[in-house]
Nucleic acid binder design. Structure first.
Lengths: 213, 213
DNA sequence: TTAAATTAAACAAACGTTTAAATAACTTTT
DNA sequence: AAAAGTTATTTAAACGTTTGTTTAATTTAA
């Protein structure tokens, strides 16, 4: 038994479930798959979580918690200019998504496919709160006359969408960039600086008041 | 029996499968679900397609075919300026994705989750070919000194990513825009002009050689 | 009359979940 | 500190469904 298994069996099951859900989807993963890879008895999943669906809920609640705090802090920060906040936001989010790409695969997967109203509500609330924080940053920039008028929701859709697209289309971009498709780490390492640069550059042009029409 | 059912049973099954796969995912849809909603006998699916997986392959091949031709034509068009091509491309793609949102839900779903190498290869090839066409448009604009130097792959990721995000996060944007969540048609009608305007505006700023750093 | 299309029934395998018995880890009592 | 009692954890086996697919008989069309 490895260290992580000993420390907290519940957390270990969550981590294995995350891996399998991201790889094969929620419906494509059986509780037996999870139990086997986690080296625990099948019944332990019901014992700890109640059901497969509640296991997914537990996973989402566990992983989605910590983001909001950092965004709130960034949004309220008085010493940074709006441009600096945008850059920090991009850096933070790219790191976050690339480091938690498994979870983000599950999120975008579940967004449309879930038949659980609880999970749907959970996901919408998480996104709404994150969106609100960034809205404030853009609004501040517009008030200070450094950002032009833009469609805030769709601007955010472009930022989130770019990142989702990169994590979800790994196979495609690995082929384009001639990276080994099976090596997650080197993909993240190669794509991370490119992604940060691209998003900052695009947002700089897109938000700049000089490009007001 | 409705008209579509009589005309071509195979096509009718494909259409019902598309609807259910988009709604509940591939693994979340049983062949019995499809047979029931399509009003055909269960065995007809094996009879026409061989298996559930081959039904998905048939669906992808059927739906993905027609896009490439239009893009090739646009890319090779001699009378349009690069800026006009970008605008046409945005208009075409937004219409296409919103009108075939069910299929695009399946595409982005399958991108990561599929365990079938055939389907994975199919999806990568489709995207690669589409990407190549747009690469040529951007390259032409750069050669003519109207576009600045950008990360072409990631610029495309932003365009595709924005559209995917909008189709996949329907529930969120319906809430933001206070549209009835269950009414697909009015969502598409409301989001379509906004999406076109936003993408054109963003690309105009992003690609403009005046914003060269 | 021959081939194609359609049917109801059955197949084994896999699914999520539950059971009841066994073991381990603590508490309390002696 | 040992024994007894109590709760928490773990187990193998079984539950009833649902899964994708196939069969063999029947109807329809050419």
């Amino acid at each position: 038994m490895s260290l992580t298994e000993k420390v907290d069996k519940r957390a270990h099951i969550l981590s294995v479930a995350e891996e399998l859900f991201a790889e094969n989807g929620f419906d494509g993963t059986s509780v037996r798959d999870i139990a086997q890879l986690a080296n625990v008895n099948l019944a332990m999943i019901s014992y700890y979580f109640g059901s497969k669906e509640k296991l997914l809920e537990a996973l989402i609640e566990d992983r989605a918690g910590y983001t909001l705090g950092i965004l709130e802090e960034l949004s309220k920060n008085q010493t940074l200019t709006p441009w600096q906040k945008i850059d920090h936001f991009v850096d933070f989010y790219v790191e976050k998504i690339l480091n938690n790409f498994r979870f983000h695969c599950i999120m975008s997967q579940q967004y449309n496919a879930t038949r659980s109203p609880e999970i749907k509500e959970l996901l919408i609330n998480i996104k709404m709160r994150n969106l609100d924080q960034i809205k404030q940053v853009i609004a501040e920039g517009q008030k200070k006359k450094v950002f032009r008028k833009v469609d805030v929701e769709l601007t955010m859709a472009s930022v989130f969408g770019t990142m989702n697209h990169i994590t979800n289309s790994k196979a495609l971009y690995c082929r384009l960039m001639k990276i080994d498709d099976t090596d997650d780490a080197s993909y993240r390492k190669k794509i991370s600086p490119r992604l940060k640069t691209h998003l900052k550059q695009m947002l700089r042009a897109h938000l700049d008041i000089k490009n007001e029409e």
